[in-house]
Design a protein around this nucleic acid. Sequence first.
DNA 1: CTCTTCTGCAAGTAAGTACTTGCACTCGCG
DNA 2: CGCGAGTGCAAGTACTTACTTGCAGAAGAG
Lengths: 200, 200
Amino acid sequence: MMLNETHAVRSSEETRQRIFAATRQLIAKKGRRGTTTREIAEIAGVNEATLFRHFGNKDALIEACVLHYCPAGVLEELLPSLGGDVAEDLRRIARLMIQEMDKLRDLILATFAEEEQWAGAGEAAWRSPAMIHQILKDFMAKRVQSGDLEGDPALLARFFMGTIFSYVIGRDRLPYPTTSTDEIVDFNINVFLNGVRKKK
Amino acid sequence: MMLNETHAVRSSEETRQRIFAATRQLIAKKGRRGTTTREIAEIAGVNEATLFRHFGNKDALIEACVLHYCPAGVLEELLPSLGGDVAEDLRRIARLMIQEMDKLRDLILATFAEEEQWAGAGEAAWRSPAMIHQILKDFMAKRVQSGDLEGDPALLARFFMGTIFSYVIGRDRLPYPTTSTDEIVDFNINVFLNGVRKKK
DNA sequence: CTCTTCTGCAAGTAAGTACTTGCACTCGCG
DNA sequence: CGCGAGTGCAAGTACTTACTTGCAGAAGAG
């Protein structure tokens, strides 16, 4: 009878996007267990029943959500545009990764922390770190081959990733002598390069 | 009437220890939210009501528990026994920290991940990392003053901690070329020292 | 012995949770 | 126009959770 706009029909795809965004936001803030389907629905502007019609249950929804926000693609897009100067290339990679991981920091921590309680979460939580590690390993391997660096590419990649990871996790929580991200990145990369650059 | 051994009386202190141990174990496995007071009591071999008589509520219990297991003291005990050779000293520090953090890995992740949902958890979760950072900062400062290292002690300490932190977190989850902890520690410390050792 | 402290036990409460169900509505497509 | 897919809405179910309460037994201190 009435044109009730609360009955507005959205496309199935748009609904999924809204649900993903709300889920990500809530998981980051409250963790997997602290996130309720009611609140997801509320923030997504969607009825709670719709969640279950889309994904079946809460676990499947969250798994779909985590995979939906995997950030490895962004890194892969950066690689072709790199110039060739090792230090500068690493700086750009580091800045990009910090930026991406910062956005996902809470989500990452939440999935790491709950890897044991979530069937299959261990694997799911580490899927995107593993992809990033693979990309960086290839990068390092090329630089080793070209004579810029030396050492095991997998180890180099892990060390480099760890540098960035621990910075993002600890930033704003541990006292820091300087506040500029760029300075820290430069420091980290200098140490890294002094340690692994091929001696001539 | 009957001598009922389920009515055995334990000292208040022993009861606290049992509760702490059970709480730590459960938080590590299931996270803060996934841990129920019922299960804590069950594992501790204690009545659920006893938890509340001791700590008032679940939050206070967990906060007391996290503080009870702060590992900074162990590190401080190691320092006086160090020989003076920078590389060897760092190796011993790294091995000890890896060992301690490994035992607390799940607890650390759980408290980090839930720092936002737990009133005051942000501070509580980072209290022991901050203590460790302080200790390492002092160590680095001495080595800078003695001419072994160069750079900002706080930055050096953070970098070094990050190395260890990311190793513990990622071990067994990211593909690693070598399985020996000692080899990784040596690699990390070599890179670190090449990067920050004072050039002569 | 007495009094206090600590604990066990059983039952219960109020609130929250994932998930379901039945119905009405609205849009796009044939 | 008619139909089917997608959604909103409201109510409800079965279960779990933090936390409480009242009572009784056991040990140690005086």
